[in-house]
Design a protein around this nucleic acid. Structure first.
Length: 432
RNA sequence: GUGAGCGUAGCUCAGCUGGUCAGAGCACCGGACUGUGGCUCCGGUGGUCGGGGGUUCAAAUCCCCUCGCUCACCCCA
């Protein structure tokens, strides 16, 4: 072959073993937890009509302005790779008449999203989100249940250091009034704001609240909190959500400067941040979107949801969870000599049928080399079959952790394996 | 879209102001130990020094271009 090797597109990545095991495990926990809260999986197309995202995510947001993978198909229709999932779920809800089913619907999803952005730590052009949406319930109880499911998910993964930030974004009717209030409060100190914030003062005053420039943060602290100017309805709603969270002892902090980047959110909004993520600390974001489905031409049906960034999640997974997942539980089956080679595969298959994970040595390396590999790869058990064993109809089984070995009848291995006392997995070298 | 840094073996890197500079450690394979790991020792596989052009007697080393990667801003998962 000529020419340079083909490389993956910028901002994408190859997920390789053993890391893929972490992804599988995380997704398994998501299915288990969200399923146990009454959730069902939904899968929607990876690309949708561009118009869908323009109308839901918002015309003025960065996501639709400069971050969408938009292209015409062969008939000239404008399509876009989905930059987020909620819009597609809402569209599917309308198109498939899900309103005819018993409400509410709890829908979870796992899949890739696409945003054309410059690469950075924790930011990719193709990234995976795990999300949950509760559609058809406008009660604070729905928000609380959603947050409880989310919290439970993180707990199952062993997270101890995450923070849930919560805020009230008010109702759309309050928004204009609120923006004016911020302008009025900050205009006198305009000169002290950073260049970006001076621009935001005109275009999107809310964004000043979460500016990272320290000087702006000081000034923004004087601005009225969103909650103060929000209508009574939204304030009471969020207050009840908080009551429910407190009752369940789910820790959270009120963050009056929390703003979200999608236009459809109202009332309850929240983020989960990890202190370990460097600059892009947001692991999960979500909120309520009671007007979204109606805005798309559907009935007036409320919803709440969140999306977890799976790439970032895997990056900061607690060590205990990772170690447990990465421990290699298989029995390494090593044939010694010609006669054994004709028998190990069948032997391994029989054990596998009884639920013992096996891996057969098929490269012909020496026993010494095989044991060395078993040690490095983290196998707990090596089963050796040679001429002696064949004539005795036994197998020699070595426990690498205990350092001892014994011969046993071939059929006894599965029982012996299941009786093995679990040992905390040895620390693996690198690569995760 | 804006700004900064970096590209030498699979991985982490050394190689100063151009003249054995193509190296080390780890990893991988093999041997010492002919059917027994984790330690030690020995040996081996492996590199167009990201690519192209220029300066020079001579470039991994200096200059230009290009590709790629990384970090930060913006924004977000």
């Amino acid at each position: 072959m000529e020419g340079p090797v083909i490389q993956r597109p910028r901002g994408t990545r190859d997920l390789l073993p053993p890391d893929t095991r972490l992804w599988q495990a995380v997704e398994g926990v998501a299915r288990e937890v969200f399923g146990s809260f009454g959730g069902e999986e939904i899968r929607t197309p990876v690309f949708e009509p561009t118009e869908l995202f323009v109308r839901t995510v918002g015309e003025s947001t960065d996501i639709v302005n400069k971050e969408m993978y938009t292209f015409p198909d062969r008939k000239g229709r404008s399509l876009s790779l989905r930059p987020e999932m909620t819009a597609g779920v809402a569209r599917a809800w309308i198109e498939n008449h899900l309103g005819d089913r018993s409400q509410p619907l709890r829908l979870y999803y796992i899949g890739p999203m696409f945003r054309y952005e410059r690469m950075q730590h924790g930011r990719y052009r193709q990234f995976s989100q795990i999300g949950l949406e509760i559609i058809g319930a406008d009660t604070p109880l729905a928000d609380a249940e959603l947050l409880a499911a989310m919290h439970e998910f993180f707990v199952r993964l062993g997270f101890l250091d995450l923070e849930i930030h919560l805020n009230n974004l008010g109702d759309p009717e309050d928004r204009g009034r609120y923006q004016e209030a911020i302008r009025a409060a900050l205009a006198p100190r305009r000169a002290e704001l950073c260049a970006d914030c001076q621009r935001r003062l005109e275009e999107n005053p809310l964004r000043i609240l979460d500016c990272k420039v320290p000087a702006c943060q000081v000034i923004a602290a004087d601005a009225p909190g969103m909650d103060e100017l929000a209508g009574d309805a939204s304030r009471q709603h969020v207050a009840k959500v908080e009551t429910h969270l407190q009752r369940m002892a789910i820790p959270y902090v009120r963050n009056h400067r929390l703003v979200r980047g999608l236009d459809y959110y109202l009332r309850t909004v929240f983020e989960v941040v990890s202190p370990q993520l460097g600059t892009n600390t947001v692991l999960c974001g979500g909120g309520r979107y009671d007007r979204l489905i109606a805005d798309l031409g559907g009935p007036a049906v409320p919803g709440v949801g969140f999306a977890i960034g799976e790439d970032r999640l895997v990056e900061v997974l607690p060590a205990r969870f990772k170690d447990a997942v990465l421990a290699r539980p298989a029995v390494y089956v090593v044939p010694l000599g010609e006669a054994a080679q004709t028998q190990v595969l069948e032997l391994a298959r029989n054990w596998a049928r009884e639920g013992v994970p096996v891996e057969v040595e098929i490269t012909g390396r020496s026993l010494k080399a095989a044991l060395k590999r078993a040690d490095r790869e983290g196998f707990r058990v090596v089963a050796m079959l040679g001429d002696d064993e064949i004539s005795a109809r036994t197998v020699t089984v070595r426990d690498l952790v205990a350092g001892d070995q014994s011969a046993m009848p071939l059929a006894d291995l599965p029982v012996w394996w299941r009786a093995l006392t679990p040992v905390s997995p040895p620390a693996r070298r690198g690569n995760v």
